[in-house]
């Protein structure tokens, strides 16, 4: 049985400046696992997630999704299965509803059923966004609210792996704890596979994550 995601001997170097970010990096993520990656600024945490969803091409090693090299999967199909939520949420200049339904306008997602208004409203509640209406302008929301909308939008695609890039980095304590409790629920109750990089001290009660520190261009288990 293949792990859901396997990273083998990954090497990556940015061309400018030409400094290696990873050398022989290995990681394996099983279905339903919550994996946390910590590390100082500039150690390459975001880069690792961007490599997994092919926002960056790697030079050496392999990244396998369900035993298949990610390079052999059609990019749009890969990114519907492995959804990356960026550190700074990006919204289009439209309502919350249009932002949430945006992925359903893309050809690769045409086989998916668009969620009903009722479902979207229920989700807003689950994401502590009771004061937000679906017709509100998404860009007028606070960063914390936008981060939760971005997370909702990703989950509507029911991805196999969720890649979360410092989801609480720009948030106050209250918003951060909301995000963390959502992530904990997604992992513990819904069995979502999550690979998350974070600076913050995330210690969930209902699930025991596997944690790593990214240092000296490699992952060290903690």
């Amino acid at each position: 049985m293949h792990p859901l995601l396997k990273i083998e001997s990954l090497c990556f170097t940015y061309t400018t400046p030409a400094a290696p970010v990873f050398r022989e990096l290995n990681l394996s993520v099983d279905e339903g696992e919550l994996v946390l990656i910590k590390g100082g600024s500039g150690t390459g945490k975001s880069t690792l997630l961007r490599l997994v969803c092919r926002l960056l091409p790697y030079q050496e090693g392999r990244i396998l999704f369900r035993g298949r090299s990610i390079e052999s999967v059609v990019p749009a199909e890969l990114r519907r299965a492995i959804v990356y939520v960026a550190q700074i949420p990006s919204m289009t200049e439209a309502s919350v509803r249009d932002n949430l339904l945006l992925p359903f306008s893309f050809a690769v997602n045409h086989d998916m059923v668009q969620p009903s208004e009722k479902k979207l409203e229920q989700m807003l509640e689950q994401f502590y966004l009771t004061d937000v209406a679906l017709n509100h302008q998404a860009r007028n929301m606070s960063v914390g609210q936008q981060q939760r909308i971005a997370l909702m939008r990703a989950l509507l695609l029911d991805p196999e792996i969720l890649l979360l890039d410092e989801p609480t980095s720009a948030l106050d304590e209250k918003s951060s704890s909301m995000i963390f409790s959502i992530i904990e629920r997604l992992s513990a109750k819904e069995g979502k596979t999550i690979l998350m990089v974070t600076h913050s001290n995330f210690t969930p009660q209902d699930v025991s994550p596997r944690s790593y520190v990214l240092e000296n261009r490699k992952l060290r288990k903690v």
């Binding site: 990114r79 959804v83 945006l102 992925p103 893309f106 939008r153």
Partner: peptide, 16 residues
């Protein structure tokens, strides 16, 4: 760039 990558990450192809 942020908008383009956000759409790519939700399954858009490069044209979309």
């Amino acid at each position: 760039k942020g908008q383009i990558e956000m759409k790519l990450c939700l399954g858009a192809n490069y044209k979309e």
